[in-house]
Design a protein around this nucleic acid. Structure first.
Lengths: 401, 401
DNA sequence: GTGGATTTATTTGGATCTTATATTTAGGTC
DNA sequence: GACCTAAATATAAGATCCAAATAAATCCAC
């Protein structure tokens, strides 16, 4: 397959080829002249490298019949573009209760997507793996591709992931990180879901220092500092179990530490509605059926009980923001996940609570625009980033016919 | 001086030259054969590159009259070593009340060191700059070098430093970050002192994730995550002002946030000795003269009042350790600076307080072995790291005669 | 000492890749 | 069709590395 170590003589070609391919991954179509400007190489060299990339199946020359808007003097330039059939990337959000896939081309355009509810605990590890394989196969089929077309699959799971794709011990984590590499074809990268959300946010709004909180049912944070994603030797960067520990003023095994805002809103509502003395519309429904959405909805309608819960979430968020801002110089805190659509009132509360008198720069608190698709979009983005980082480590599908 | 962008043809030579130079910076003496094994290049190539490095003034061939312990068969290998006169690096700890310098050779051997008390507030910015220049000149003179021999000077200051070496607004920070680049000769890099301490600790005990707390008078932390130093766009990574904010349960402008353990021990002792009801030997001295060392000393002798302060420091440290461990997957927390010699009792208290029942991995709490010299040692280490990262960006002093 | 044996240095030729400089080519314009 | 222009191609030259052959330096056995 790929030569492990190219001879030193060919290293230069490799470097130039990578650079050109990186450029190609960004542009729609490009001419040798444009590539020359970017890479600093000679025309002859660029064309030579392009030849190689066409041979390898990465690029194709585009017939310039529709040379629209080109400068009309001189010999027309040959134009290249990424070969459509070179391959696709697959993103999979392998959550606890649903899977979401996206198949995208190498320029990041979404070709197809699917979503499916699953029961992880019934399926077990191998069941999750098989289910993932089937859902990906279906999505590929939707868009007329096969598993062989996939250059890289990135899977997001709700578990800490270390640099080798492994998770710490723990039944839930081992279930979530279901050994996808053995079930899926080709190159597979497993990543923490909140980290992928952070990658999606970074792509959408580049900022060197931002935290993305994935905080629906469970709580996870993806930290990007100095433009890089933090991981930690056990994949534990971004855990926030310290929160209750600290605020309690003493070290208690926390309860809410792993709960996301959605879960907290529900739990707080159910457990406090008895002792609450005022009026609240939430009393109209059976206690066991109150959901997070009901709380947010009630708050929007001015229900004081619900508003109190919103305020508590805001206070919690403000504490997190203060810690992140102070300790890591975080500039933006993004709330992501399905809950982001309803989170604005919480953000407003939190913004009020941020301490202004300390002279410190305040972090921006915003809601993600990706909704429930953050993780899978981040998976696509992550796949593309990895391919761009080392294009020649991936073999394009179906070299020249 | 240094060509900005080498022609692409010469890039390969540059890469190989860098790799070889990196190797040379680690070894005492080396033969072409050893370099071949490391770089994977041919003998002819290695010798060619070595020729170039000798010409450039980086290497010198060592006469093998004392070929001790070499394999005794065959033609003796030519042996090279880093040229002693190629240059030195300078580290400067530019603290608030004293300066410390070290001059080291390119292999990190300490050649000379000086230390001087200063009054920063009397000197002002330019006074600090001039003082630094003079102290460095003297230290170089001690070891028979001149300012021209310096390849790189790294300066540690007690202020946040962004990627461009600048500090945020603030009288104290601007005073500390005194514009050293304009006062010193050659290439100068300014860095936060705690960050340099962290670099020193990483060099001493490599660990991908560790925090180094510089906590004598002021408080600062250097965070190393995934092997890299965290900085932040404003250089604010590692600030810990959130501590009191959080523990107070509400957002109050903190008081102790910027105080180190030394300062806290002193302040707490002075402010609480009145209300303390038991016996304590610290009452024997005037309240305004109690120093941190006195508190630590009294605690060692079993004084309950002092022990209580130690315990409070331990609780504080434990909280910090829990946050760092949880949020950044930090494995080791190192207490560095002059105070590290006396800090062990605090560490013992803190270790007891770390929550064991959560199933989380506990961070190791240890005292630095570098004492008051961490920062300046880290400066040297940082300088060498930078030179190793891009050797050819530095011109060796005095090419071949 | 002299002649292997051994290891390294040096030389030589060839291959790859890049650059620089013509020369040709493909379009448009007049 | 002559002319213009910018790009493609062709050619020569330079840089670098590798592989193989040759030369050198040292030890050791005799």
């Amino acid at each position: 397959m790929n030569e492990t170590t190219a001879s030193s003589t060919q290293l230069l070609r490799q470097i130039n080829s990578d650079a050109l391919l990186r450029f190609a991954l960004q542009e729609q179509v490009f001419t040798a002249g444009e590539a020359m400007a970017v890479t600093g190489l000679t025309r002859a060299t660029v064309l030579g490298v392009c030849d190689g990339l066409v041979d390898a199946g990465w690029l194709e020359e585009v017939d310039d019949s529709q040379a629209v808007g080109r400068s009309l003097k001189g010999r027309p330039a040959r134009r290249y573009q990424l070969r459509e059939a070179a391959g696709v990337v697959v993103g999979l959000d392998a959550g606890e209760s649903y899977f979401t896939t996206i198949v995208a081309d190498l320029r990041g355009r979404e070709l197809g997507t699917r979503r499916q509810s699953i029961d992880s605990h019934a399926l077990g590890r191998s069941g999750r793996g098989a289910c993932a394989r089937e859902l990906i196969r279906l999505t590929l089929h939707d868009v007329g591709r096969t598993l062989d077309d996939v250059l890289l699959t990135v899977v997001g799971v709700p578990a800490p992931i270390d640099a080798n794709g492994r998770s710490p011990e723990g039944k839930f984590w081992q279930l979530m990180n279901s050994g996808f590499a053995s079930h899926l074809q080709g190159m597979v990268v497993v990543e923490n879901d909140a980290n992928l959300a952070a990658v999606a946010e970074r792509a959408h709004e580049p900022s060197a220092n931002q935290a993305t909180l994935l905080t629906g049912e469970r709580f996870g944070a993806g930290l990007i500092v100095d433009g890089r994603l933090l991981r930690g030797p056990r994949g534990g960067a971004g855990e926030m179990r310290f929160l209750d520990t600290l605020t309690a003023g003493k070290f208690v095994p926390d309860e809410g530490g792993t709960d996301g805002f959605g879960a907290l809103a529900r739990k707080w509502a159910r457990s406090r509605i008895h002792s609450y003395e005022g009026k609240t519309m939430l009393r109209q429904m059976p206690e066991g059926e109150i959901k997070a959405e009901d709380v947010f909805q009630a708050a929007r309608e001015g229900d004081p009980f619900a508003e109190d819960i919103i305020a508590r979430l805001g206070a919690r968020l403000a504490r997190i923001a203060v810690v992140l801002s102070s300790l890591l110089d975080i500039e933006r805190v993004v709330i992501a996940g399905g809950i982001s659509r309803a989170i604005e009132p919480v953000l407003e509360h939190a913004r009020i609570l941020l301490p202004t008198e300390t002279g410190l720069p305040l972090p921006e608190l915003i809601a993600s625009r990706f909704g429930a698709e953050v993780v899978v979009k981040g998976a696509i983005e992550s796949a593309l980033t990895q391919i761009k980082a080392e294009p020649n480590a991936f073999l394009p599908r179906a070299a020249r016919s």
